[in-house]
Nucleic acid binder design. Sequence first.
DNA 1: AATTATTTTTTGTCTAGGACAAAATATGGC
DNA 2: GCCATATTTTGTCCTAGACAAAAAATAATT
Lengths: 296, 296
Amino acid sequence: MASNFFSIQELAQETGISKDTLRIWERRYGFPLPQRGQHNERAYPAEQLEQLRLIKQLMDSGIRPGKLATLNLMQLQELAQEQQTAPPDDLAPLLELVARGQQRELRLQLESLLLQQGVKTFLIETVAPLNHAVGEAWFAGRIGVLDEHLFAEQLSGLLQGTLSGMRPDSETSRALLTTLPGEQHGIGLLMAACMLARGGVEPVLPGVQLPLEEIVRGATTQRCSIVGISCSSYMNRRTIATQLVRLRKLLPVSIELWVGGSGTNGLTALPRSIRIFSNLEQIGAALQQPDRFLGD
Amino acid sequence: MASNFFSIQELAQETGISKDTLRIWERRYGFPLPQRGQHNERAYPAEQLEQLRLIKQLMDSGIRPGKLATLNLMQLQELAQEQQTAPPDDLAPLLELVARGQQRELRLQLESLLLQQGVKTFLIETVAPLNHAVGEAWFAGRIGVLDEHLFAEQLSGLLQGTLSGMRPDSETSRALLTTLPGEQHGIGLLMAACMLARGGVEPVLPGVQLPLEEIVRGATTQRCSIVGISCSSYMNRRTIATQLVRLRKLLPVSIELWVGGSGTNGLTALPRSIRIFSNLEQIGAALQQPDRFLGD
DNA sequence: AATTATTTTTTGTCTAGGACAAAATATGGC
DNA sequence: GCCATATTTTGTCCTAGACAAAAAATAATT
């Protein structure tokens, strides 16, 4: 039984850490230190992939890789446990359904909750925390990638359905929602889109990974007064910041730039004309302020 | 006005050609030959990005990069034009709607066509060729990335809606449909899913980019007798072949492996236990043969 | 003591050029 | 024409050095 080894390319793809970075971590910290294949290529065992995922997660909470790379697996797990925020009790049954891959039952329960709570409450008190909890459970190894993906698909379908029932038919303000090139996670966009639609703004959703030039072109041709970008912590923070600043420069001043998602946490020194949202409520609040068209 | 330059990283992201490959092409063929930035980093002008896209497209039809890299833009365009297959006339009005970004009208027309033609004809004679034509039009610069994305979203929504109305409720054969890690295009999956659903097979759609181990786990836990993989020409052929062979080895022999998409065109020397579909009709045909459970 | 300016460390990405296997093509023998 | 053997083409990997931007630590100032 050939236990599985990963090439450096595969490891980079799975973790979102570039090949260059993987090599230099090995040089500097001695981790991840792979075996070598027949032709001297790096061959990473599955455990190192797991450990890297853990490290990536801890980095998102601000700990530096230099510290993390010197710790062993157990110490990392301790650290991770400290950080774990237990998911609210009422989400436990839903999480259970995700873990068991019972998509249909999950869908039904979510639909029922949506009706019960209404869009806003559903988004803020159910969808957002559940999505977060699923992400954490995946990191902790309590649910598999497959179940996480299936959950995301169910949620997308549900939110898209909700959206199509909410589209205002008259001429209203519009918002173009997308992610930066390289960012593949689009669930945040759908959540934001629902909040916006609820506030009378019509979302335009061209999917993920739109090149900056196309964002600008799209916002103009689609007559959007807002561009919304969702950033996960998958991408490197520096890249995110650079791209956002560049986008702000390309975009007409009359168009607002709104940014949200876990990838925006550690961002410092962005121009004030880029508006950062750290949760969904803030979107709702922003839509109610009449002064929201005063730029920087 | 600082005309836009791209870093090697951005170019790699946009074209799907790796940084290593870009550098070695420069070394060997002298193209793309970027300017240099303040710190000697490569800075690619937008025209080189365009030319690269063209080259990538021509490579998909079997021409070798060594030949292409020595040609100038005009020669490339000539070659491309030779290859262009004019889209069927009846698609022209739809393409026009895509190009103009008139999503709502497009959606209505597609829905009407779906009702008129029925699922199978709609998929084979409208969706597949239209999708192809949109891809070609994008390469040729006749429509923007934004419009292409918006089209894909509309189509996804429509097909997903169709699917949810087709799901068989009794216990039937199931198929897990996904893409390999690195492959982001999922439209093909939805088309295949519709064909399968129509043939009485229930599709399981966990989204794109599922790690091989998870595909195996998913196929087992979800009790699927078929695993379907869609490959676009975005990914390198060699990578595709390697991954497919690896997947076939990981997968129990009782589970069939079906593969389709433009990325499978030039694939040679795959084991016969991997079944390649070059169009949607073949899926329909395969579902009607009673001997389809005889593996290699 | 708190804030601001300056140095030091940390970190990720870039560069160059070399090596090599697998795929694709060309060449020779039958 | 067809099969086996060279030869070329191609993409990815390797090492090792450089450097700027961000973060942290230290010094200087109010």
